[in-house]
Amino acid sequence: MAVVEGVAAPAPKVRLRPRGVSRREQWQRRLPLLPALIYIIVVTQIPFVVTLWYSFQNYFFDIPGGAHFTGLSNYTTVFTNAAFRASLVRSVVMTASSVIVAMILGMAFALLLDRKFLGRGVVRTLIITPFLVMPAAAALVWAGPMLDPNFGLLNYLLTPFGVHHVAWLSTHALGSVIVVMIWQWTPFMTLIVLAGLQGQPADTLEAAKVDGAGALATFRELTLPHLRPYIELGILLGSIYLVNAFDAVRLMTNGGPGTATTNLPFYLYQQVNYAFDVGGAAAAGVVTVILTIIVATFALRMFARVFQFDEAAG
């Protein structure tokens, strides 16, 4: 006999809506958030408001008399300034290439470290170390002992391949800076992807084995989709930090030769520290911020997707 289902549910007796949270309760919930919120608004937003104000001012540190209003002239300068545009493009190139390569290497390393082999812990320790090295130290060590044309270790190691005393920082400046950034951020990507790999439930992998999937198919069909949020998170956080990359540029090439490695952060730094042009730098900063907001809007959407917020309101 079929169990006959479908006992009709009577219509709700009263039309109800959730009562929600009381006003007092709402303030009690808000209270712990306020210190951090106020702090971050004061410390991060006020400087940008001031930046906006200065961007309409003519203000040089080295010229006495203080600031005075100049209208949009700072912006005109920024938009007609080829150096600004070039540094903007360079920033994009540097960030994108280093993040992408670091992520590819990071995935490869994570897959290596996910296998069992003798001394896995030691190798993991070796691989994460570059992330822990002070960026200033990394930049100086790469610029000197590693890449120096006369006594650098890299030239020595590449001698068998016909490389002789290449002055990397003069001939391949941008590439060298990017290599150092990749070297520092690959461990970060490795750790994030490794966390993803190790969070993959073993039973689904076993199920795939039983279903007859090979290593490659398992990776493509199961592992990669599982890793996706981790990869996105790595790219996102990596971009946030690398777009502000300053140490390597300042300490390895000082933006040179010429302006070959001048990215936006270094350009703005120069405007303030060498040209003393607070107004001009502020206008450039405002433009940078607006561009960042455009990019960040997409990035934030990505964040929302990565974290999905399945947890919902607890």
Partner: peptide, 13 residues
């Protein structure tokens, strides 16, 4: 108890 507006109550009267 209603969890969200316009959904059937989780517990009804």
């Amino acid at each position: 108890r209603v969890y969200a507006k316009d959904t059937p109550p989780a517990v009804d009267a």
